[in-house]
C-alpha cells in the first residue's frame, strides 16, 4: 500500500534556526529519514518553500484567475500532486491552467525549497 504523508507546521512554531534545539531536531530528521530509506519504503520526499511564495490558479468562465498565496477554498480537498522542472513561474502557471480540475477547483503552484532547487 502506498501512502502520502503531508507534513504541516505553523510558521514560527518549532525550534528556530541556529538554536541547539534546531540542531537536535535536524539530527532527528536525519535519523528518521535514514531509517525510512533503509526499510526501502521511501518513494520521494521534498521540502517546499513557504506559503508566501505560492500562487493559486483557477479558471472560471474561460478566464484564468491568478492569485497570490495558497488560499484554497476551505471545502477543497487536496487530491493530487505533480512535481515539474520548468524554467520559470509563467511556464509552471501555464501547466497549472491545463489541469482539468482547474475549472472547478484550484491548482496551487509552490516552488520546492531553495535547497531542493540546487539538489
Amino acid at each position: 500500500m502506498k501512502y502520502m504523508l503531508l507534513l504541516r507546521f505553523e510558521l514560527d512554531a518549532g525550534p528556530a534556526e541556529g538554536t541547539p534545539e534546531f540542531d537536535a531536531e535536524m539530527a532527528k530528521w536525519g535519523e528518521v529519514m535514514g531509517e525510512l530509506a533503509q526499510t526501502g519504503s521511501m518513494i520521494a520526499a521534498h521540502g517546499l518553500d513557504t506559503e508566501a511564495t505560492a500562487t493559486t490558479v483557477r479558471v472560471r468562465d474561460d478566464e484564468a484567475l491568478v492569485t497570490d498565496g495558497p488560499f484554497a477554498e476551505t471545502k477543497e480537498s487536496f487530491f493530487s500532486y505533480i512535481i515539474i522542472d520548468v524554467p520559470d513561474l509563467d511556464t509552471a502557471l501555464g501547466w497549472a491552467k491545463k489541469m482539468p480540475n482547474v475549472t472547478y477547483g484550484s491548482v496551487e503552484v509552490r516552488p520546492l525549497s531553495a535547497h531542493e532547487q540546487d539538489a
Partner: peptide
C-alpha cells in the same frame, strides 16, 4: 520584502510576456 522574496523564490520571469 515579501513581494521581492516571492519574485526570486518563485522565479517570476524577468521578461516581456
Amino acid at each position: 520584502g515579501r513581494a521581492k522574496k516571492k519574485i526570486k523564490a518563485a522565479r517570476i520571469p524577468y521578461r516581456v510576456p
